[in-house]
């Protein structure tokens, strides 16, 4: 079992957003979390990653049988959790190369490995770029600075490829993408899927799930998972809309 969330409650500035989430993700599985806007999807992603603006008030999150909630953001990352941001942050003056090299080496250090040499690192960059079909000179630019929406999302997938996470959470990675960029992003994810890692794909629309076939689909509504099913649930949602879920409740 990769991730086990039990009765997770979380709030921001006293306002409860997550009201008892239960979710289990096993190695090799892709879970899609869907739901209308403002129901807590991004909050769930941030809480798993350890963002401290949210207070966990109740519940448990186990990751590889370790209590995740006591770890810092970077420790969780070094344990293999990757969050693909809905709105990736621009960091002027810091090139993606240096940014990634710092990250890769800090993670290696945490795992007791020697830092990667410059040559080896550059080679790895090239490979991963190819893997996620980045042809542009993206990597010499500052992190996300002046990137288009599509470039930012591709850059997230590229970073995911570089850091080889065990659990990747993609927060609305499809939002704002045109169909070509969507395909590139999805292909990247599919290439990185193995029997050893797990994915949680957060999305508002079913569209992305045409490309990334989920094993499970969950509907998040008002801070709870109100319905779970296979990939056909996504189709049903697409057809009937979220009002259908509301009516069922």
């Amino acid at each position: 079992m990769l991730l086990k969330i039990t009765n997770l409650h979380a709030s921001i500035k006293g306002k409860e957003i997550l009201k008892g989430i239960n979710l289990v993700v096993n190695k090799g599985e892709v879970h899609a979390i869907m739901g209308p806007n403002g129901t807590g999807k991004s909050t769930l992603a941030s809480v798993i990653a350890g963002r401290d603006v949210f207070d966990v008030t109740e519940g448990e999150v186990l990751y590889n049988a370790k209590n995740l909630l006591t770890l810092s953001v970077e420790e969780r990352a070094r344990e293999g959790i990757f969050l693909g941001f809905q709105y990736p942050v621009e960091i002027p003056g810091v090139s993606i190369t240096n940014f990634m090299r710092t990250a890769v080496n800090e993670i290696r250090k945490y795992r007791g490995l020697d830092p990667m040499g410059a040559g080896e690192f550059l080679k790895m960059m090239e490979e991963k770029k190819k893997l996620v079909e980045i042809t542009s000179n993206l990597t010499n630019r500052s992190v996300n600075e002046g990137f288009s929406g599509g470039e930012k999302k591709r850059n997230e997938i590229f970073q995911m490829a570089m850091l080889e996470p065990t659990l990747a959470i993609l927060d609305e990675t499809d939002s704002g993408l045109d169909i070509d960029a969507l395909r590139v992003v999805a292909n990247g994810v599919n290439k990185l899927r193995t029997s050893e890692n797990g994915f949680v794909v957060i999305t508002h629309y079913q569209r992305l799930l045409d490309y990334i076939i989920p094993d499970f689909v969950h509907v998040l509504f008002e801070g709870r998972i109100v319905k779970s099913g296979g990939k056909e649930l996504a189709m049903e949602l697409e057809e009937k809309g979220y009002d259908w879920i509301k009516q069922q409740l």
Partner: peptide, 22 residues
């Protein structure tokens, strides 16, 4: 931005340094 850097595994001190440089 701090959260973003730390989410990539970069420790808090180094993340702070990078952002100051930025």
């Amino acid at each position: 931005a701090m959260f973003y850097l730390r989410q990539r595994g970069i420790g808090e001190d180094n993340a702070r340094m990078l952002l100051m440089f930025a």
